[in-house]
Simulated assay, not measured.
Amino acid sequence: MSETRDCNGAILNEGDNVTLIKDLKVKGSSTVLKRGTVVRGIHLTDDPEEIEGRTDKVKGLVLKTCFLKKA
Score class of each variant (00 low, 15 high):
L68H: 07
T19N: 08
D46M: 05
D47I: 00
V62W: 02
T45A: 03
D16Y: 02
K69G: 07
E3P: 04
R35I: 10
G41R: 08
S2Y: 14
S29M: 06
D56E: 13
E50Q: 10
C7P: 09
V18N: 01
H43R: 12
N8R: 14
L68P: 07
K57G: 00
R40T: 07
V32H: 01
V39M: 01
L24C: 01
V32Y: 01
D16H: 04
P48D: 07
D46I: 03
G28F: 06
T4P: 09
E14Q: 15
V58I: 08
L24Y: 00
K59H: 12
G60V: 12
D46Y: 04
R5N: 11
V32E: 02
L68Q: 03
L61T: 02
D47C: 01
D56M: 10
T55W: 03
T65R: 06
K27P: 01
G9R: 07
V39D: 00
K57F: 05
E49D: 13
D56A: 13
D16S: 04
N8P: 01
D56R: 11
L33S: 05
G60H: 14
H43W: 09
S29I: 04
A71K: 14
L68C: 09
D23T: 09
V62M: 09
P48A: 06
D6C: 10
I51R: 00
T19K: 14
D23R: 07
